[in-house]
Amino acid sequence: MQQRALVNPFAYFAEKRLVVVGLAATAIGSALGWLFNARFDGVLDLHFVQQLRVWQPLLDNGINILSLTLPLYLFGLSINGKTRLIDVVAAVLVARIPFYVLPLANIGGYMYGAANQLVTGTMEGTPVGMGTIAANIAFFAAAVSAMAVFVFWLFQGFKTATNSKKPAHKWIFGACIVLSEVISKMMLVLVSKI
């Protein structure tokens, strides 16, 4: 049961509990983002910056959650009229949890420095230390793993919320994530101008 619940928590836990856990994780993730200078600037993005304001990671996450929920809910309704908004919201909130661990890689500004060293070294042709390369590779692997778990959980949640069965739904689901990424980027640009 525990293993199955980890693979598809949406099949076993009540939506309210999932939403509470997801919201708590969003708050903790945003706090970690602020502490370790990480911006969640897009549904599939995370970048380390030199400085940021306390509300920025929280706003990023709010925009990301909204950008994912809207297209997925509308698509869910087109598959199954009984799709509930709360189930889609729960799926989005829980699926984003893996991203919230990533800011820990920038404790003491380590990853920001390592990424900058790699970029500067590559641009200027100066030698880059093995430690820097290893740190960048390790972070890349962690980010890809987080993204894989995110997509997997989001799909499990979406499938449970909509009872989707057709193979074509998987492709449209993928397109919805890409659309969400575009929407979130546009919203972040708009918000930054305000």
Binding site: M1, F10, A11, Y12, N80, K82, D87, T160
Partner: peptide
């Protein structure tokens, strides 16, 4: 039913729909 079976509401509803 979902509380009794330990499964989420949409899972039970999907089973009913099927």
């Amino acid at each position: 039913m979902s509380a009794q079976t330990g499964k989420s509401y949409p899972t039970v509803r999907n089973r009913l729909d099927d």
